[in-house]
Design a protein around this nucleic acid. Structure first.
Lengths: 140, 140
DNA sequence: ACAAATGACACCAATGTGGTATCATTCTCC
DNA sequence: GGAGAATGATACCACATTGGTGTCATTTGT
């Protein structure tokens, strides 16, 4: 199986945010309901709901309860970083933590493999660093 | 949880092979028994056995059955690449395969995220490419 | 009041990884 | 040839994670 850098809930979040940002560009200031998102994006409703609630808690979305309620972006698309989404849904980004028998491997400092993994982790972090919803939307 | 580039069985394989290579350097040509490896490396015996059997099947080790039997390296330590170990225990190395609803995401080609992931994957492959047991043993 | 929306939260299922157990086979040595 | 020491093969199990569902409470507009 493929090594996952991005899990499914992060992925769904990206898709949902992209949709919302795109819609925002045309019809200004609209609140979007889960129903619309589900219809447009074809994701399982309860799962998406959970994701949106997390985004709301993280203040990336604003929510409005009750009739006529829904969600809207709490900030511009170029201020929403996927690194933050990854943090929210997957926790801090890191590669192998090099455990051995429940403890951090004592050789961690000297280990050649570890050096390589660290280089990879650094590179990956650099690649993902500046990426925002806006860029993903624009394909660039 | 940390994104795993290297899983535990690959890790165990590396450790076992390193030990065997190190011993080889001193006492030439010795066959090593699972019992010795378990004692020295402190891994669960049946699990290690399974791993060694796979290495044997992949012709990285040679085995001898029966009394006085055991394993020895089937090639020099500088001819054993961790990429091959990863292949054996984890399958082909790749990052996210970008599925959406059981199908490969139709936007895969244009997707900006995907481009980043591909860059990371390439870099990672390059980093790991030449690494052998010998280098790990030498810490370089 | 009622219906439409989210909030909070508990629960469930599938999968992968790590680990165990068992029996068959081979080999050496007496 | 038989006993015991080793691997071969393989089935099974436990735990964690991820992905996903379901339910009830709360808020809000008409």
């Amino acid at each position: 199986m493929a090594t996952k850098i991005v899990t499914r809930n992060t992925d769904y979040a990206v898709r949902a945010l992209c949709y919302m940002a795109a819609r925002e560009r045309k019809e200004k200031g609209g609140i979007i309901t889960v129903t619309e998102l589900v219809k447009e994006l074809g994701m399982p409703r309860p799962f998406l709901r959970k994701i949106l609630q997390k985004l709301n808690a993280a203040k990336l979305l604003m929510s409005k309860k009750g009739k006529g309620g829904g969600f809207r972006l709490a900030r511009q698309a170029d201020k929403i970083f996927i690194t933050q989404l990854m943090e929210i849904f997957q926790g801090p980004f890191k590669l192998n933590d090099c455990m051995f028998k429940r403890k951090i491997c004592p050789n961690r400092k000297a280990c050649f493999m570890r050096k390589k993994l660290e280089a990879i982790e650094e590179f990956a972090a650099a690649q993902l660093k500046g990426v925002t919803i806006k860029e993903i939307l624009n394909g660039r």
